[in-house]
Structures are given as structure tokens and as C-alpha cells.
């Protein structure tokens, strides 16, 4: 018999989104202010863990049907591809490029290929953290 956890679940529904937004913020802000892919990834994972605590693993799996091992692999590939893409432009491996663009809605924005690499880091961190927690949690 489970205790009544309505308060936890209700709070979680709100807090999860706040954490997720903070994670996204900290990820994108990383290049100029503290943060980045690693912390962002960890925070995202903690949001999902919070969901798992409030509900249960099966429910969370239904809500977020990600294969985290695949996510890790995609993250690694993305990081490697960002690093490797530079050799097609005849510059050394791992040379990043950035420039300023005028985007609709955003206005003048600086776009940096390092963000793609950081996205790879982010995906790997989320993938690995969730893999570990899910695997251990499911273990009998």
C-alpha cells in the first residue's frame, strides 16, 4: 500500500519544468556565464530522477520513451562529428567556427559550433546518468 503522495506529485509536476528550463538556460548560457553541457545534463537528469521518485520507473518510461544508451551514442557521435567536421574545411581537427547572424525573432545572435559539441556532452551526460540510475533501479 502506498502512502498518499499527491503533494509530492503535484509539486513535482511544477518543479520538473522549472528544473528543465533552468537546465536549458544553464546549457545555453554556458559559453558566457557559468554552466555548460555537463551541469546542464546533470540537472536535466535530476529533473527526470525527480519524476521517477514521485511516480515510478514504468510511468516515467512511458512519459519519456527515450533509449538512454542510444542517447549516449548520439551524443558521442555528435561531439565527434563537430570535432571532425573541421577537417572538411581544411583546418585542423577540432577547430571551431562562430559568427553573428540575424535570425528572425532572436535578432543579432552569435552562433558557435562549440554549442553543438556541448550538446553532445549534454546528451552523453543525460544518457549515462539515466542509464546508471535506471539500470540500478530496475535491478532486482
Amino acid at each position: 500500500m502506498r502512502t498518499n503522495d499527491v503533494m509530492l506529485q503535484t509539486a513535482t509536476k511544477v518543479v520538473t519544468f522549472i528544473i528543465l528550463m533552468f537546465a536549458v538556460h544553464i546549457f545555453f548560457a554556458g559559453h558566457y556565464t557559468p554552466g555548460g553541457g555537463f551541469v546542464g545534463g546533470l540537472l536535466t537528469a535530476s529533473a527526470i530522477v525527480l519524476l521517477m521518485l514521485a511516480f515510478d520507473i514504468e510511468t516515467v518510461k512511458k512519459i519519456i520513451p527515450f533509449n538512454y544508451v542510444m542517447m549516449t551514442a548520439i551524443g558521442l557521435l555528435l561531439a565527434l562529428a563537430t570535432a571532425g567536421a573541421s577537417i572538411f574545411f581544411n583546418v585542423p581537427f577540432f577547430t571551431h567556427a562562430y559568427d553573428y547572424f540575424y535570425l528572425p525573432l532572436f535578432g543579432k545572435t552569435s552562433l558557435h559550433s562549440a554549442a553543438l559539441f556541448d550538446l553532445g556532452v549534454y546528451l552523453v551526460v543525460v544518457g549515462v546518468t539515466m542509464t546508471i540510475i535506471q539500470t540500478i533501479g530496475e535491478d532486482e
Binding site: 554556458g30 559559453h31 554552466g35 553541457g37 570535432a83 577540432f94 571551431h96 562549440a114 559539441f117
Partner: peptide
């Protein structure tokens, strides 16, 4: 093209380690 030295070192100057 960045402001956070730590993060720029991690992803740009010495991204190899991070990889």
C-alpha cells in the same frame, strides 16, 4: 567567441580532453 573561460577551455581550447 565566448565569455566563460572554463567552458571555452573545455569545449574549444582543449575540447579533445572533453571528447
Amino acid at each position: 567567441g565566448g565569455g566563460n573561460i572554463v567552458n571555452v577551455i573545455l569545449v574549444d581550447y582543449r575540447g579533445f580532453d572533453t571528447l
